[in-house]
Design a protein around this nucleic acid. Structure first.
Length: 196
DNA sequence: GTACTGATTTTCT
DNA sequence: GAAAATCAGTACC
């Protein structure tokens, strides 16, 4: 069910692909929200677009820690973004989760996001952190245990099987500083992705 | 539907 | 002091 930390110890690009279809699960005392990952982007530390490219700082230190942990950062004065630390050797880095398909706790997501439209709840990195209640408190937390977890593709019944041909690969979004590389992955024809 | 713009604040230079 | 892996709102097809 829960992805073991060893899962994250593979090439960051492979991890970004294989995380599609897995479930991001946030729980607190009373309530749970779950979304199916439908869009990711890979950021290796060796890439100028990575927050860790210029070395370790207090903000990005989670990227330099063990794999399978959360790297959460605050940006544009408004939003949190959620990454998983991944990779081994030269491919060490993080995978940004950019969009989810809402699965459980949808009423709570609507309340947190203050919108009704299903395809607008988690269709962007800042939107999904708000919908699930992910904040800086979770930065550095392991994802195989605790309030924020990632579950494997077959954890929940009646979810569509993912074939390699269902995964679309294209350039990343929103980069202002570095070159855009084709390191963005999403599930083809899924209405919850941030854009096509 | 696409295109552009302002909001807002932490982080690093 | 400027940049930032974004979002919501507005204007126009």
């Amino acid at each position: 069910m829960i992805l073991p930390l060893s899962f994250y110890r593979q090439d960051t690009l492979d991890a970004a692909r294989k995380l599609l279809g897995c479930f991001l699960v946030h729980s607190n005392a009373r309530r749970q929200t779950i979304g199916r990952i439908v869009e990711t982007e890979a950021y290796k530390l060796t890439d100028p677009a990575s927050h860790g490219y210029k070395g370790r700082t207090e903000r990005n230190s989670a990227l330099f820690g063990p794999v399978g942990h959360a790297y959460v950062y605050f940006t544009y004065g408004n939003h949190f973004c959620f990454n998983v630390t991944t990779g081994r050797g030269a491919s060490k880095g993080g995978v940004l989760v950019r969009a989810l398909e809402p699965i459980e706790g949808i009423a709570l997501m609507r309340k947190r996001r203050d919108t009704e439209k299903l395809t607008d709840l988690c269709s962007g990195p800042g939107k999904l952190t708000r919908a699930l209640g992910i904040t800086l408190d979770l930065n550095g937390f392991p994802l195989d245990d605790g309030p924020l977890q990632i579950w494997s593709r077959d954890s929940l019944p009646s979810q569509p099987k993912i074939k390699r041909s269902d995964i679309f690969q294209t350039t990343r979004i929103g980069l202002t500083r570095a070159t855009e590389l084709p390191w963005r992955f999403y599930l083809k024809d899924n209405p919850h992705v941030s854009r096509r």
